[in-house]
Design a protein around this nucleic acid. Sequence first.
DNA 1: GCGACAG
DNA 2: ATCTTGTCGC
Length: 228
Amino acid sequence: MLHSWTLTPDEAVALQTELAGRVALAPLGPVRTVAGCDIAYDTFAPILHAAVVVVRLPDLIEVERAVVRADAAFPYVPGLLSFRECPALLSAITTLRTQPDVFMVDGQGIAHPRRFGLACHLGLWLDRPVVGCAKTWLVGDHAEVGPTAGDTTPLTLGGETVGAVVRTADEVRPCFVSPGHLCDVDSAVGLVRRVLSGFRHPVPTRLAHMAANEARRGEAASGYADTT
DNA sequence: GCGACAG
DNA sequence: ATCTTGTCGC
């Protein structure tokens, strides 16, 4: 165990500052498989569905997937997202029979107030490479990014480049890419650019998002059937 | 004090 | 994230 998941928001903040020092940034090695991870929240119950879908490169064909239902024990607090989503993602990842070369999550990596976003936290627990690809800005400065799919512009924070703003498809709002662990900015951006398919979301997280949603809807349907 | 704030 | 159908546009 890296640490306990039972803590207060204040303790979580302190833990992030401590763990940020353990994040390692280095070029990503050869990538044959990428595991997209995402979560769907239940409408009223504090329940969530974590999904992980593994695709192979370069054809982006799905090779395996895992979905798990879990309790949302930690509240959503900007800057502390990993404490809410990591436990469920970890249990889903544990059920995989194959070890992906790299993971990709819906959230920030080091482009974070304390340089410890969801991608970093998951990376430390797994001791595996993780790339963060968030749909909206959290921190950092950047110039306007080009309009064509694949265009990028640096995302800086405190004078250093922590990631990049990436146009993942033509005519769509850009995504914010930053390394989480065991990879660097160039590797993270390079990987994201290799898993695009004309949609705003990269294929791995796009499929995970759909899988998590299907799981959520499926459970809602069974619940109604029970009442009826 | 004021504004910002991943999913 | 989630509540929500159709609709305007390429």
